[in-house]
Design a protein around this nucleic acid. Sequence first.
DNA 1: CATATTTGTATCGTGACACGATATAGGTTA
DNA 2: TAACCTATATCGTGTCACGATACAAATATG
Lengths: 151, 151
Amino acid sequence: MGNQSATPDPDLLLKTLAEFRYELRRFLLFSESAALEAGLQPQQHQLLLQVAGAPEDTDLTIAYAAERLGLKHNSAVELVDRSEREGLVERRADMNDKRRAILRVTRKGKLVLGRLAGSHAEELNELAPRLTGALKHISFNAHRSNKVEAR
Amino acid sequence: MGNQSATPDPDLLLKTLAEFRYELRRFLLFSESAALEAGLQPQQHQLLLQVAGAPEDTDLTIAYAAERLGLKHNSAVELVDRSEREGLVERRADMNDKRRAILRVTRKGKLVLGRLAGSHAEELNELAPRLTGALKHISFNAHRSNKVEAR
DNA sequence: CATATTTGTATCGTGACACGATATAGGTTA
DNA sequence: TAACCTATATCGTGTCACGATACAAATATG
């Protein structure tokens, strides 16, 4: 039987995953260096983005920022500390619940963030095809690997 | 001309970018904890993936790994050091160019990597729609922001 | 073919930052 | 009001990426 035709490359999934992570890393590198050039630490950029880009009805607490950034609470506290020191965000007291610190992006923070948003949209625009392409390959290959298991 | 229409939410781009990064972060969190549970540091996982998932005709040098992981050369050296110590990869001499170290994933490394690949494919399968959804919104919005600039 | 330059990898000291453990004040429940 | 829970804060520790530097091997230049 002609197995010469298909030979579906046992490492195809690995190759596709590698390609996907590579494109992802390139985007993250772009984002990091864009943030640094704009005067922000990459994580500060992410903090501003999640606070300024949250739905209107959200309580902008430290805990919210932590969840959105995938950080533990204490790491978020430290990130807010550093960002507040540089005038990017402010803590305001919550009168309903005095334990809480409500976050607010300052005018300075919004300005920098706005500039970054534009360049990120453009970059993502270029990245999108490669990323979604890799994703399609993976989902196609995901079923096969369920049958094949470890090699 | 008609800006009277739908008050297109000045922060829509920020919201979409925030959502995109959130989904991305969730995937990375999944990947990191999957790696740790499999006994790898997240970066070791990425090293294995890029070495094992490289095209056949690639010279698997330290420099290649560095580029693929978005690291400086010296950081890649250190990552390979740590990974070699744990028996995940090996350095082999390149007879053509004795400066080079050629990387090879050990059987142990391949085994762990194989297991991770499966779960990642499944996870990406679930993530893909949300990610590509956000990407579409962004590319749609990218053009607008070119005209609007900083707000 | 001897020397200068470049390339690939390695070493070392430093700094940023995320974390676990712990603390404390403010809410909530019994 | 005591016991418990929740939200934020503090502190010490460890990992890791980096810049600066070193060195050996390859390539270019005279």
